[in-house]
Design a protein around this nucleic acid. Structure first.
Lengths: 164, 164
DNA sequence: TGTGAAATTTAATGCAA
DNA sequence: TTGCATTAAATTTCACA
């Protein structure tokens, strides 16, 4: 994984496209080389499919941490949420009405980064306390929810017939 | 959202490709119609970008539940994990060494489905107890971890120089 | 390894029915 | 919605740096 690979993958994420032409505009890497690089990344297993899903372990973001965040905010939770979202590595911020206020998932390069992450969280004014859990193994971690359903269930649940 | 839309989106998830030709083979929907449908889905905001990321609310899987799962298993946790992964709606299963054994995220069509989900969990032999938290708002929920990092941080963390 | 140019295959669009 | 013709993009190949 060198600088060009990283720039390329970052561009795909930011632009939300795999178009070689667009990626060229963004990164200045020649179209021909973009093909060459993406093929290598695919062979190495960093890119998983045509949809550019990434293998976090191969990529170098294989460390996952789950945090329960306890806060004190006045008015709306949106402001706190916005601050939590900005912290590097945070991929999911769920506001709940349960025991804690937010459930956060972060993707990190290594264990050292966990410390930095906690510090970033504690630095947010409204955050009272965080309870972090280190993920030993991401047994399942798919960005494609439809995969987890059978076609029959999906047809039943998602198709709008007159019943609702 | 009719049956064809659902079949199409399901095929994209299962095949891991957006290739009209491949989708046609899988669904028997004419290539021309696949274009037509995908454009509509994009306009309606169900599909978010060229990478076919989905808007869960538009799609009809906007209900998210987080479960802490307490288990008693003999030997490896892999067996239990495999069972949890099979439950419909489950997108993430994290094994931890924390207070609970597994942290699970599920995507559901509506509140009714939550009840079914809990039942499915309790039905797993090794599961002692589950603590489920209903997500009020998915403030952030991205399948693209690189977006959350600045390019500088990524270059620092992901590029293999001689330092490790 | 990386890149450009040409050749080939695929995908996207426009339009008629 | 679909087929067909047209246009545009993406992919592969290959020579050469």
């Amino acid at each position: 994984m060198d600088e060009r690979d990283v720039r390329l993958l970052k561009a795909i994420s930011d632009l939300g496209t795999g178009s070689p032409e667009r990626l060229h505009e963004e990164t200045d890497i020649p179209v021909s080389t973009i093909h060459y690089r993406l093929n290598n990344l695919r062979e190495r297993g960093v890119i998983e499919n045509d949809l550019y899903d990434l293998d976090l372990d191969e990529l170098g973001l294989g460390v996952t941490v789950v945090l329960e965040v306890y806060t004190t905010y006045s008015g709306s939770y949106r402001g706190v949420a916005a601050e939590l979202e900005e912290i590097e590595g945070v991929t999911q911020v769920f506001f709940t009405m349960g025991e804690y206020d937010f459930m956060v998932v972060a993707r990190l390069p290594n264990s050292d980064a966990v410390e930095r992450l906690i510090t970033d969280f504690e630095a947010v004014e409204e955050v009272d306390r965080t309870n972090s859990t280190f993920v030993t193994s991401r047994t399942k971690d798919t960005p494609r929810p439809l995969q987890t359903y059978s076609l029959d269930t999906l047809l039943e649940e998602l198709v709008d017939d007159g019943s609702e």
